[in-house]
Amino acid sequence: MRCKDASRLVSEGFDRRLSLAELLRLRTHLAMCRGCSNYRSQMLFLRRALRRYAGGKAPGGGSRGA
């Protein structure tokens, strides 16, 4: 698997269920490739941030006050 395909699959994993074959190939690639595993971590972080944003926790909010 090439990095370009791996990065796409990481994203698609948020939107559809990956096949077992895709998952295995992706996992194998991620285990060997620092760039792609960083990419995946960043995508996961992005998700967390988007969830917070959609819950009104940002930017003005949270419990911190104005």
């Binding site: 090439r2 760039g35 792609c36 960083n38 971590s41 972080f45 917070r52």
Partner: peptide
């Protein structure tokens, strides 16, 4: 050309991203 990250733009780990939140 081989669809691998160019070294200069390959994703680098973000430092303590959750603190940014």
């Amino acid at each position: 050309g081989r669809a691998h990250w160019r070294p200069e733009v390959a994703p680098v780990a973000w430092v303590r991203p959750d603190e940014a939140l």
